[in-house]
Amino acid sequence: MSTVRTSPGLLAAPAALFLIVFMLVPVGLMLYVSTLERGAFGGVNWGQHTAIAYEKLLFERDLAGQIAFNSDYIAIILRSFRLAAVTTAVTLALGIPTALYMASLPPRRAALMLFLVTVPFWTNLLVRNFAWILILRNGGPLDSALATTGLVTPPLDILYTPLATGIGLTYSFLPFMILPIYVALERIDRRLIEAAFDLGADRWRVLSRVVLPLAAPGIAAGAILVFVPCLGAYVSPELLGGGKSLMIGNLIQAQFGASRNWPFGAALALVLLLVLLVALALLASVKRRERLAS
C-alpha cells in the first residue's frame, strides 16, 4: 500500500471552507449592502452605491438638505459600551468569588455547583428575561419584598430603565463569567498555593499574588465572553429596558425591521465589529508584549 500524501493545506480545507461560507461571505455581503442605497419599501437598490449609511452615523440632513452633526447614534453606541462595561464589571465582582468558592469545594459538590450554574441555559433566554419583567415590575415580588423592609417606598420603578437592562444582562451572562474563571482556578497547581502559605503569605496575599494572577487568562476570557455579546445584546434591552434605553443591537434590529434601512443597519453592524476587533487586537498585542518582556 502506498502512503497517501496529504498537504497541510488540504487538511485545513474543511475549516477554511466553513470560515469562508459562514464568516467571510456574510461579512462581505454586509459590507456590500452597507454601501447601497436603501430601497423605499425595505431591502436595497442593488448596484446603486452611496456612502450615506456611514454619513448617517455622525450627521443628519435636515429638510433643507443641510448637513448637521447628530450625536444620537453615537450616544446609543456609547451607552451600549457603558452597559456592557458595567455588566462585565458586575459579573466579574460576582463571578470571581463564586468561582473561587466552587474551586474550593470537593469534586462532587463542585460538579453539582457547575450543574446549577448551567441550569438557566435550559430555559429560553426570552422566557428568562420575561420572568425578570414579572419580578421587577411595580407590585412584583421584588417591589413588595423591599417594601416590607421599609427601606424604600414603593413603587420602585425599576422596570424599563437601564438598571433593569443591566440586571437582565448580568443575570444572562453571569455563567459565561463563572465558567472560564472556574476552569482557570481549577487548573492551578495546589502546591503553588501551599508554597505561598509556606513562605508567609496570608490568605489575602495568596489570593492577590498567586491565585488571581494565575487565573488571569480565565478572567480575561470571561470578560471577553461577557463584554462582546453584551455589546450587541438584543433581548434584555428590548424586554427590560423598554424603548428608553436602546442599545446598538436594538438599533440594528430596527433598521432591518421597522425603519427599513438595511444599509444603515449593515453599516452599524460593521462599525460594531470593527471596534471590537480593534479592541481585541489591542488586548492581544498587550499580552504579547508582556510575554515577550518575560
Binding site: L192, F197, S294
Partner: peptide, 29 residues
Amino acid sequence: PPNLRPINTVFQSYALFPHMSVAENIGFG
C-alpha cells in the same frame, strides 16, 4: 498556620510561581 511558622519548605515539584521572575520568586518570602 504555615504562614506564621519560621519554617520553609523546598517542595518535591519545586512549586515555583510561574508568573513571577526568578528574583520575584526568591524575594516572595
